[in-house]
Design a protein around this nucleic acid. Structure first.
Lengths: 97, 97
DNA sequence: ACATTACTTGGCTATTTGTCCAAATTATAG
DNA sequence: CTATAATTTGGACAAATAGCCAAGTAATGT
């Protein structure tokens, strides 16, 4: 029962972390592009730089992304996770609200 | 592109709605119990009544649950959606933070 | 009619989240 | 050394969320 509760909390934590259009967009992109710089993600998502940086760092500190720094650039990628499947699930849910 | 954006917003909306331990617990239960009263959900989740009611009504107004009232009881159930799959996805993600 | 059970409502407060903006860092190019 | 490009940081503020509590409604049993 307590294990169950812990599981739910962990799941909720992850869901909360990804539950934002910009962050979902980032995840979706990283799912097939492997790794992208902040600049590239800026262009793709249309999100302002510092705000995007906040999102990325947030996802990184929560364990969903990792960074590789090269020159002046920071390349973000998914941390070994298949998070895209969550997006697919949601799509399949076909919840029409 | 705009369609894509709309999709992401919708997905984020749903994820935000379910991203809470109690709410996930409710969804998980309703996935196999079909429908449960507020009282039953209270016992299962250990959540206080009025708070649980808030959660349930919230999920209902956002289109994830539906209610059937019978006597003094309210029976909640999933609104035609396979939301449980999201939980399974998250579990499979195996994100260790 | 009255009490009880089951649920909802609304107000209040604390906390978290999202966004913006200006300043700071850091690496490279000239 | 200076300028520029790329990213991070931190403050400030509004809005959303979570939780608690007290009061309200509504159906049923006595």
């Amino acid at each position: 029962m307590n294990v169950e509760k812990e599981k739910l909390e962990k799941a909720a934590f992850i869901l909360k972390t990804i539950a934002h259009p910009t962050r979902l967009a980032v995840i979706a992109q990283l799912q097939d592009k492997e790794e992208l710089s902040v600049n590239e993600l800026m262009e793709i998502t249309g999100c302002e730089q510092s705000l995007l940086s906040h999102h990325l760092i947030n996802m990184k500190t929560k364990g969903l992304l990792k960074v590789r720094k090269e020159g002046t650039s920071a390349y973000y990628s998914l941390k070994e996770i298949n998070l895209g499947s969550v997006l697919t699930c949601i799509e399949k849910c076909n919840c029409h609200m």
